[in-house]
Computed example of a mutant assay.
Amino acid sequence: PQRRPGWTLTGVAYAGDDRTGVRATAVACAGPAPLDDGPADLVFVAEEPGVGLGTRLAGLAGPDPGPELVDALTDPGPGHPEHVGQARIRVGGHPTPLWLVNSPTDRSAYAGEARGMWLHAIAWPASAGHLLAEDVVLHDLTEWTPPELVYGAPSPYLSGRA
C-alpha cells in the first residue's frame, strides 16, 4: 500500500493591536481529505469573546458563535442523540467538546469554549470535518514545538485569498 502524505502547518495568524495585545490566534494545517483523494484544510482559532476571527472564517454572522451554539445544543435534529454533530478534542490535557454550527456548504465549522476562550475548528471542504472524529490534541506551541513539525505552502484561508 502507498503511504499518504501527512499534515503540514500552513500558517499562523493573530488578531489584536498594540493597545490590547493579541486577542485571537489561528493555526492552519493542510493534508489529505479523509473521504477522498483531494486536499483538505483545517484552521483552529482560539479567541477572546467579541473578537470575531473564528466566526468570520466559519462564515457566521456576529463576533461570537453563541447563537449558533444555542441552536446546536437545543435542536440536534429529529432522532439524533445529543453527541451527533459534536467533536471532542483535547486542549491543555482536558477533553473539550466542539459542536457543529451552521456554516456555508463549502466548509464545516465547529465551535466551543475552554478557559473563557472561544474555540473554532473550520475545515474545507465540508467533508474534511470528519477529521475531527479522530483524536485531536491541541498544544500550546509557545510551550513546546514538536521536532517533526512540517511547514507547507501558505494557507489561502488566513490571507483572505479563499
Rank of each mutant, 00 (worst) to 15 (best):
P95W: 00
G21E: 05
Y157S: 07
D106E: 14
L132K: 12
P156I: 04
I122T: 11
T8H: 12
V70M: 02
D41P: 13
L100E: 10
G11V: 05
P39C: 00
L138W: 06
P95L: 01
W118D: 10
V101W: 03
A72V: 08
D140L: 14
V43L: 01
G79W: 07
L141G: 11
R19L: 15
A162V: 11
G116C: 03
R56I: 01
G129E: 11
G152A: 01
S159G: 09
H120L: 06
A30M: 05
A26Q: 06
S103D: 02
R90S: 03
L42E: 01
G160M: 10
A33C: 04
P147L: 10
L9C: 04
Q2R: 13
S103Y: 05
P65A: 05
V137W: 06
R88T: 12
A162I: 13
P63K: 09
R107L: 00
Y157N: 12
P146R: 11
D71E: 15
V51N: 08
Y14T: 15
D41V: 14
A72S: 07
A109Q: 01
D64A: 06
A72H: 03
N102I: 03
L53R: 14
Y14E: 10
A46L: 13
G66I: 00
D106I: 08
T8D: 04
P95V: 00
D106L: 08
T145M: 10
W124E: 03
R107H: 01
A87S: 05
D71R: 15
P104F: 02
Y14P: 05
T142G: 13
G112R: 07
L42K: 07
L53Q: 11
A26M: 04
G52K: 11
P104N: 07
W124T: 03
L42Y: 01
G31P: 01
L42D: 02
D64M: 01
T105A: 13
R161D: 11
D64P: 11
V45D: 04
E148T: 15
